Amino acid sequence: MPASQARAQGIAARLSALGLATRVEEHVRYTSIEAEVPEALPAESWREVLEVVAEADRFGLLASSLTGRTLWAAVTKTVPATGDVRGPGRQR
């Protein structure tokens, strides 16, 4: 398992351990983790949640009166190193 995927799975597992239902999705350049945040989440739990998502490369909170609050985090995937990084059409 690539290190970036392990990080994303670790973040999701820790959020789940805090009582949040998580979704993990693989994208081309990153892995996203989303969790619905209940209205009644205690302040102490918020501190723990923020400590967890701070390990991601990016994170945020989407809030609306229609859909509630969704916490998201993204872990950038590692780009494999290549011997020639000049791109298409520039190879010898």
Rank of each mutant, 00 (worst) to 15 (best):
G19S: 04
E51I: 13
R29T: 13
A73E: 02
E26F: 11
W46S: 00
R14I: 05
A74I: 02
P42I: 01
R86I: 03
A3L: 08
L62D: 13
A56T: 07
I11E: 00
H27W: 13
V53L: 00
E51D: 14
E48R: 15
T70H: 01
S16Y: 04
Q5M: 07
A8D: 03
E39C: 05
V28Q: 12
G60T: 09
G87C: 05
A3Y: 14
A8L: 10
A21H: 10
V28N: 14
A17P: 07
A73H: 02
R7P: 06
V24C: 01
T22C: 01
H27I: 05
H27R: 15
E44L: 11
A12G: 03
L41V: 09
E26K: 10
L41E: 04
P2M: 00
S4F: 11
A21Y: 04
R86G: 11
V49G: 02
S16A: 11
S16H: 13
E44T: 12
Y30H: 15
R14C: 04
P80S: 07
L66T: 09
E25Y: 06
A8G: 08
F59A: 08
P80K: 02
E26D: 15
A3C: 11
T22G: 01
P38F: 01
A21M: 08
D84L: 06
L41N: 09
G68F: 01
A12Y: 00
A13P: 04
V37I: 12
D84E: 14
D57C: 08
S16K: 12
E26W: 09
P38D: 03
W46M: 03
R7S: 09
D57W: 07
A73F: 03
A81N: 13
R58Y: 11
S64V: 07
E36P: 01
E25L: 12
P42C: 00
